[in-house]
Amino acid sequence: MTAVIQAVINGIMMGAMYGLTALGLTLIFGVMKVVNFAHGSLLMVGMFAAYWLIKLTGIHPYLSLLVVPPLLFFFGYYMQNLLIKPVFRAEQQVREPLTVIIVTTGVWYVLDNLALMLFGAEYRTVKTSITGTSFSMGDFIVSIPKLSGFVVSVATAVGLWLFMVKTRTGKALQATSLDREAANLMGIDQYRIYNLAFGIGTAIAGIAGCVIMPFYYVYPSVGVVFDIRAFIIVVLGGLGSIHGAMLGGVIIGLIESVFSQFMPSTWTEAIIYAVFLVILFVKPSGFFGKKQDW
């Protein structure tokens, strides 16, 4: 029993971080109706940025949160402006231009393989002051980097939600999500909103990179692992929903850590896919998805 509760604790902490990796994806989909296949690669860029920053300057790992997310915000902002906006312009009347999916897939290939050329294929870890530290709560052990990751993930989700409902810019994002033509007529510049959504989504991938780096390893195709998981999470939670992404993340984290108590960990992956398909067939819009989005 102790082992199971321990697994639940670990699962919730990891799950919140999975949710964080899916948060940017769900935001971008919610606003633009586009699945960003480059999301995992952007997470990889965030992880490498955090890795080199911590490795070269030796700063406390969480100080990287002040540098990496803003950097990635601009990266995402200008990537959307340069590569994705023209495609949207060309296919204005299409609600979900599949061409955009392909452009983001191209970005994924380019980024992953540029990283491979620059840094090689080896797995890299960075030793920080908090790596491997933990404290005990009764019978249970809580890893400090994972707990910090959990706290940052929840704080980011709450922050994003507050931003969406409380600020004017957030409301403009929501308006564009609901009806881009109507939002345009209200004087909202659709493409500036897309730049913002992409920038924020990418910045969140940067936050995820910073909190995962202290206890995980980075390699050029690390994004694929998180990417597929993030796809499953957003479909589970409902594409476009913030709390859906966090809940979906925790569910995946729990399945992974609890089931791995009873079976080889390669099987838990198969179970995640099976659960995903069952939920999809029973309730395709996910937990909090909007009916019109699927």
Partner: peptide
């Protein structure tokens, strides 16, 4: 049958998840 009702993005993600699920199962 169940996925064709969905919009583009969902359909694409479902086919990926299905294929990956089968691959993982066969590997196990």
């Amino acid at each position: 049958k169940p996925t064709f009702r969905m919009r583009g993005a969902y359909f694409a993600l479902c086919t990926i998840a299905f294929a990956e699920g089968i691959r993982v199962m066969i590997e196990n």
